[in-house]
């Protein structure tokens, strides 16, 4: 049997809200070490990679590896039936064709149970190589969300340039052009408010704003986001999930024809 009880159930709600517009169906890989998911959007331009380690659940039981194919829109609808402070348990019997979701109120006086039919998903898995990135930018996730939203009024692409001075986002469109430049923070009250650029070498890449906008829906998961860039490789956008794992997005760049 597979059973994973998540005391902070709202983490799962935020996760699914963050990926449901990008990916329709996904296989949740359940292993003794934890739960993971890898899925591409339908145009194979972006990829979602989720990891939730077993020690983030309480308790976590996984006797054998299981793949749970789940329609994320259905899952998102079901999760809307839970309250933000509910404890959420995911369970799957060994011979079952469904995943069971249990929502438990903090005082345990309300318990709801939903049985979700599993779906067969033929999903192509990719090997993501370890990469030494040219530049790693860390910033508040709300700032990332704001910049992506602001750039979208200008066009459908953004060029992100990292240098020793900081990071610059710029967009061009029919109505005009604009940019936002963030300097590395010198002194901030909280580390979560800081902008840092860890630079091996200056790099500039262009990306579709539509995908960055979808990624930015993960902002409620974490106060900070990390963007990792290298010349001519996919961008890595990472949100940490409390102390238990991460939600990563990869986005192929736009390249010169």
């Amino acid at each position: 049997m597979f059973e994973a009880r998540l005391p902070q159930g709202q983490i799962l709600k935020k996760l699914i809200e963050a990926v449901r517009e990008l990916v329709t169906d996904a296989n949740f890989e359940c292993k003794p070490s934890g739960l993971s998911l890898q899925a591409m959007d339908s145009s194979h331009v972006s990829l979602v990679s989720l990891l939730m380690r077993a020690d983030g659940f309480d308790p976590y039981q996984c006797d054998r590896n299981r793949t749970l194919g789940i329609n994320l829109r259905t899952l998102a609808s079901v999760l809307k039936c839970s309250s933000n402070d509910d404890i959420i348990t995911i369970r799957a019997e060994d011979d079952g064709d469904s995943a069971i979701l249990i929502f438990e109120s903090p005082s345990s006086d309300r318990l709801s149970e939903f049985d979700l039919k599993l779906v067969d998903i033929d999903n192509e898995q990719l090997v993501i190589p370890d990469t030494q990135y040219d530049a790693v930018v860390r910033m508040p996730s709300a700032e990332f969300q704001r910049i992506v939203r602001d750039m979208q009024i200008l066009g459908d692409s953004v060029t992100i340039a990292c240098s020793k001075d900081g990071v610059k986002f710029s967009a061009n469109g029919e109505i005009g052009s604009g940019s936002v430049r963030l300097k590395q923070s010198s002194a901030v009250d909280s580390e979560d408010d800081a902008v840092t650029v860890d630079l091996q070498q200056a790099v500039s890449l262009t990306f579709a704003l539509r995908y960055l906008s979808l990624f930015s829906k993960a902002a409620p998961l974490s106060p900070t986001v990390t963007l990792s860039f290298s010349k001519d490789v996919p961008l890595l956008v990472e949100f940490r999930i409390a102390d238990m794992g991460h939600l990563r997005f990869y986005l192929a760049p736009k390249i010169d024809e």
């Binding site: 591409m40 331009v45 990829l47 898995q125 990719l126 192929a252 736009k254 390249i255």
Partner: peptide
């Protein structure tokens, strides 16, 4: 003009 690349150009299938 720039063209959108796909992930298959960078990551190999498992």
């Amino acid at each position: 003009a720039k063209k959108q690349a796909t992930l298959g150009a960078f990551f190999k299938p498992k």
